[in-house]
Simulated assay, not measured.
Amino acid sequence: MFTQLIALAVMALPEARAHGGVLSISIGDAWYDGWQPYDSPVGQTSIIRPWSSYNPITDATDPTLSCNDDGASPALQLTAPITAGEEITAYWNQPWPHPYGPMLVYMAQCPGTTCTGVNSDTLEWFKIDESGLINGTVYDGFWGDGLMIADNSSWTTTIPATIPSGSYLIRFETIALHSLPAQFYPECAQLDVSGGGTQAPASYELVTFPGAYSATDPGLTIDIYSNEAQTETTYPIPGPPLYGSPPVRSPKPSSTTSVASSSTGSATGTGTTTAPSSTPTGPTIPEYGQCGGTGWAGATLCASPFTCQVINGTYSGSHCLTGYHAYAPIC
C-alpha cells in the first residue's frame, strides 16, 4: 500500500509543476511581491489581486476568468503608481513549462478614484498587447509563450501613453495550447495611472470576462498536434482587437499599401497607410518577427526601433525585439 501511495505521489508531481501564475511584478525600480495562493489570505498584501490555485482555468466561460478568483479585492489591497507610457513586467514561476500558445495583456478602468472594492467581473477590458504564433508552424513554431519563457519567464508591456489617467486593473494572461481544452492562466494587478491622454477605448475594443472568449473560438479549439497543424502558419489570437486598432471594414480598392499588425505576431499600435516609396529601403520585420538563425534565408532588417537579437540558445533563430533580451544584439 505504501509503495502505491509513493507511486501516485510521483505521478502527481509533474502535473503540479506544470502549472503556476504571476508571482511578482516590477515597474521601473519598484518591485512588488505577488499573492501567495496557498497561504492564508489573512495579512496578505499585494498589488496583485488574490488568486487561489496554480491550476489552470479550462472553461472559456468560467466565472473566475477575469482575475483567476471571485473578482474581489482583499482587505489589504495595494495599488502601484505608474505613468502612461511606462513599462511594467510580470514574472511567472521559472521555468514556465508551456511554450505553445499566445500571450495577452488587458486593462480595465475602474469607476471612481480606486479599484479597491471593485469586482473585476463588472469591468470592461481592452487589450493592450498580444503575441501569438511568431514564426514556424502551429505544430512546432515559436509562440508568444515561448518568447515569455526565453525572457526569463517574464513579460514586459507598455502602458499606452494615450489612455486617460485613472484607476485601472491590468490583466496578464498566458494561454497554453498543449492540451484541449485550452488552459488559461490570468492574473490581475491594481494600478494608478498618471500622465495619460484622452483616448478612451472604443466600444468595439471592450469586452468582459467571462464573455471575451467562447468555447468555439478557433484560437482555443485548435489542435496543435493535428496533421493540419504541421503546415498551418497562421493563428487567430482570441479576444478583441488591440486598443487603438481601426474598426474592421470591408476592403476597398486603393492605390496605397496598408501596413497593419499581423494576428500571428505581436502588435502595439494602429494600422497605418503609406504611399509607395520611390526609394525602396528593403523589407523590414515587425516586433517579434524572425530575422536570423540557422538556415534563415529571409529578411534581416528589423523595423525601427527593434533590433535583431538572439534570445535563447534553445531556439535556432533570432527575433526583432526592443530592449535587452538575455543576449546582445546581432545586427
Rank of each mutant, 00 (worst) to 15 (best):
Y139F: 09
P99V: 05
S52D: 13
G141A: 01
D70L: 11
T61E: 12
Q94M: 15
H98I: 08
I128V: 15
L133T: 04
S153F: 07
T61Y: 06
S46M: 09
V42P: 03
T61A: 13
E87N: 14
Q44Y: 10
S46N: 10
Q109C: 08
S24W: 01
G146E: 02
D140Y: 01
T116G: 06
T122W: 05
V118E: 05
Y106C: 04
F142Y: 06
T158P: 06
T64Q: 13
S52F: 15
H98M: 12
A90V: 02
M103W: 09
P63K: 10
S153G: 07
L147M: 13
D62R: 05
L133K: 06
S26R: 11
R49H: 09
P63C: 10
T122Q: 08
P74S: 15
G117Q: 01
N93D: 05
D62Q: 02
C67N: 03
I82S: 03
T113F: 08
Q36T: 13
P56Y: 09
Y106W: 09
S66A: 15
G43Q: 10
D69K: 08
T156L: 02
D59Q: 10
W155F: 06
G112M: 07
Q44W: 09
G85T: 10
D140W: 00
P95F: 14
A108K: 01
P37W: 07
A72C: 09
D62V: 04
G34P: 03
Y139D: 12
L133H: 00
S153Y: 06
N93G: 05
P50G: 09
L23V: 12
A75R: 11
S46P: 10
S73G: 09
P160I: 07
Y38M: 15
P74R: 10
D29C: 12
D33M: 06
S40L: 07
M148W: 01
V42C: 09
I57A: 03
T157E: 01
D33L: 06
A108Q: 03
T58P: 10
H98P: 02
A75F: 12
D69Q: 14
D121V: 04
K127P: 11
P99L: 05
I47A: 02
Q94F: 15
D69S: 14
D151M: 13
S40T: 12
Y100H: 15
V138G: 01
I159R: 04
S153T: 07
N68L: 08
L133F: 00
V42H: 12
D33T: 11
G85L: 11
G112E: 09
D121W: 03
P74G: 09
A150F: 00
A30N: 15
F126E: 08
N68R: 10
S154R: 04
G71E: 03
P41H: 12
S153W: 03
T116E: 12
D39Y: 13
M103C: 12
G43R: 04
E87G: 11
V138N: 05
G85C: 13
I134V: 12
T45S: 15
L104D: 05
T58V: 15
L147V: 02
T158V: 14
T113R: 12
G21Q: 00
N93E: 11
P111T: 12
S73E: 05
D151Y: 11
